[in-house]
C-alpha cells in the first residue's frame, strides 16, 4: 500500500458516495446514466468473486463489500426508487457494443484460462469502458449538473492516482500487472477530455457544465 493507491481508493469511494447522495437527496437521477451504473455493479461483482476464495486483508475485504453495496444501492435508486426521474431516452448507449468485445477479449487475453481469472479480466476490461454511456449521455444532452461533474472528476482522479500507484510499484517492487495497467491507461484517457472541460467550465463557470 502506498499513498497513491490509498488516495486512489479514497477518491473512488468519494465518487461513488457523491453520486449516491446526489440521487438520494434530490430524489432524482436526472442526467445519470443507469447503464453506466449497471456496468459498474457488474464490474465489482465479477472482480470481487475472490471475496469467497481468498482473504487478503481487512481493508481489502471491507472496501470490496462497501463498493458492492453502494453500487447496487445506486442501481436500486435509479431503477426502482426514483425510476420516474430516470431519463432512458437520453441513456441510449448500446451497451452490447461494449459487453460483447470486452467478453471476447477477456477469453482471449487473460492470465489463466479459469472461470475466476476470466471474470476478473472481464471486470478490468469492462471498467475501462463502463463510463462511456455516462459520457455519451452528457454529450447527447449537452450538459451535466456540477455535482455530476464532481462525481466524474473523482472517478477520473481515482484512475490517475492508480496510474501513479503502478509507476511507484514498478519502481519500488518491480510489480507490473500488464492487463490492469494497459486497461487503466485506456480508461484514464477517456477522462482527459472531461478533465479539460471540468477545469475550464465547471470551476470558472456557472453551475452547469455545457459541452460544445
Amino acid at each position: 500500500m502506498n499513498i497513491f493507491r490509498l488516495s486512489g481508493d479514497v477518491c473512488h469511494l468519494i465518487a461513488i458516495i457523491i453520486l449516491f447522495l446526489k440521487i438520494w437527496r434530490s430524489k432524482s437521477c436526472a442526467g445519470i446514466s443507469g447503464k453506466s451504473q449497471v456496468l459498474f455493479a457488474l464490474v465489482f461483482t465479477t472482480r470481487y468473486l475472490d471475496l469467497f476464495t481468498s482473504y487478503i486483508s481487512a481493508y481489502n475485504t471491507v472496501m470490496k463489500v462497501v463498493y458492492l453495496l453502494l453500487a447496487y444501492s445506486t442501481v436500486g435508486l435509479i431503477f426502482f426508487r426514483f425510476r420516474n426521474s430516470y431519463d432512458s431516452e437520453s441513456d441510449s448507449f448500446r451497451v452490447e457494443f461494449l459487453l460483447v468485445p470486452v467478453a471476447g477479449l477477456s477469453f482471449l487475453e487473460n492470465y489463466a484460462f479459469t472461470p475466476l481469472e476470466i471474470l476478473w479480466t472481464f471486470s478490468i476490461y469492462l471498467e475501462s469502458v463502463a463510463i462511456l454511456p455516462q459520457l455519451f449521455m452528457i454529450t447527447k444532452t449537452g450538459e451535466a449538473e456540477s455535482i455530476t461533474a464532481h462525481y466524474l472528476l473523482f472517478l477520473g482522479l481515482y484512475r490517475a492516482l492508480y496510474l501513479a500507484n503502478w509507476l511507484w510499484r514498478f519502481h519500488t517492487e518491480g510489480f507490473y500487472d500488464q492487463i490492469a495497467v494497459v486497461s487503466g491507461v485506456v480508461q484514464t484517457i477517456f477522462y482527459c477530455d472531461f478533465f479539460y472541460l471540468y477545469f475550464t467550465r465547471v470551476l470558472r463557470g456557472s453551475g452547469k457544465m455545457s459541452l460544445p
Binding site: D9, H12, I56, D177, A180
Partner: peptide, 10 residues
C-alpha cells in the same frame, strides 16, 4: 495458472 497475480488491488 502460476502466472496469475495476487489481486490485492481494488
Amino acid at each position: 495458472e502460476d502466472d496469475a497475480l495476487p489481486k490485492d488491488e481494488l
